[in-house]
Amino acid sequence: MTRLLLPLEHAPHTAAALDDDALLHALKRLPRRVQQVFLLNRLDQLDFAAIAARLDLPLLSIERHMNQVLQAARPHGDGLAGVAGQWYVRLQSPQVTACERIDFRRWLDAAPAHLEAFHQTELSWRSLLGPARQLGHDDWYRQGRAALSLGGCSIAIGLGVAALFALGFWA
């Protein structure tokens, strides 16, 4: 797989590439958990297993979240790009098997369009670094589950206030 990856200094110069503002907007529309998984991977360079352990999520959820990010970063209606994105994410998983790597190689060799779609997926992934830095500028994504929602906290506070009323301590 490493020989398929492009050099880091290769910048996306395609007409289909979205600009940073459009990518940032697309990332902001994703659920907070998806954003958090993406930022932990992209900015902190944590692998899927480390993210899964840190957030107490199954590896398949991490893969699904990363697929959502790539889907948001590509033009809609491009089915081949979707398949390339799925392969790109799956190959990063520690659960990828040798058979899957062989299947990927067969898919890649089946048509020149497959290689081009995978190449564009790599470029798309690289183009997400700038918007990722903007999205995670205040490091909110490094906090645990409590940082994502106040729902559980609100319930606890509500129960505490109800208990105070019930016991007559609230006056």
Rank of each mutant, 00 (worst) to 15 (best):
M1T: 15
T2I: 09
T2G: 15
L4S: 08
L4R: 12
L5P: 03
L6K: 07
P7T: 11
P7I: 05
L8P: 02
H10D: 13
H10W: 10
H10Q: 12
P12S: 11
H13S: 13
T14Y: 09
A15C: 12
A15H: 11
A16D: 15
A16R: 14
A16H: 14
A16F: 11
A17V: 01
D21K: 09
D21H: 06
L23G: 01
L23C: 02
H25I: 02
L30D: 03
P31W: 08
R33E: 15
R33H: 12
Q36Y: 01
V37G: 04
V37P: 05
V37F: 05
L39M: 05
L39H: 05
L40R: 06
L40K: 03
N41I: 09
R42W: 06
R42G: 02
D44L: 05
Q45S: 10
L46A: 04
D47P: 02
F48K: 10
A49F: 03
A50I: 04
I51G: 06
I51V: 08
I51M: 01
A52D: 07
L55E: 02
P58E: 01
L59Y: 03
S61D: 15
S61Q: 15
R64M: 11
N67V: 15
V69A: 04
V69D: 00
V69H: 02
L70P: 06
L70E: 03
Q71A: 13
Q71C: 05
A73G: 00
R74E: 14
R74M: 07
P75Y: 01
H76I: 07
G77I: 04
D78E: 15
D78F: 04
G79W: 00
G79K: 09
L80C: 00
V83E: 10
V83G: 02
A84S: 07
Q86E: 13
Q86M: 10
Y88R: 07
R90D: 09
R90K: 11
L91A: 06
Q92I: 04
Q92T: 11
S93P: 01
S93A: 07
P94V: 05
P94I: 01
V96E: 03
A98W: 08
A98R: 08
A98V: 11
C99M: 14
E100F: 05
R101T: 06
I102G: 10
I102L: 06
D103W: 08
D103N: 10
F104D: 03
R106C: 14
R106H: 10
D109F: 05
D109H: 13
A111K: 05
H114P: 05
H114D: 03
L115E: 07
L115P: 00
F118A: 04
T121I: 11
E122M: 08
L123F: 01
L123A: 04
S124T: 13
W125V: 04
R126P: 11
R126K: 10
R126Q: 14
R126D: 10
L129N: 05
L129Y: 13
P131K: 00
A132N: 02
A132G: 09
A132F: 00
R133K: 07
L135I: 00
D139T: 06
W140F: 08
W140A: 02
R142E: 03
R142K: 02
Q143E: 15
Q143T: 13
G144M: 09
A146H: 12
A146R: 08
A147L: 08
L148A: 04
G151F: 12
G151E: 07
C153E: 15
S154D: 09
I155A: 15
A156C: 04
G158I: 04
L159P: 04
L159Y: 11
L164C: 08
F165W: 13
F169G: 14
W170T: 12
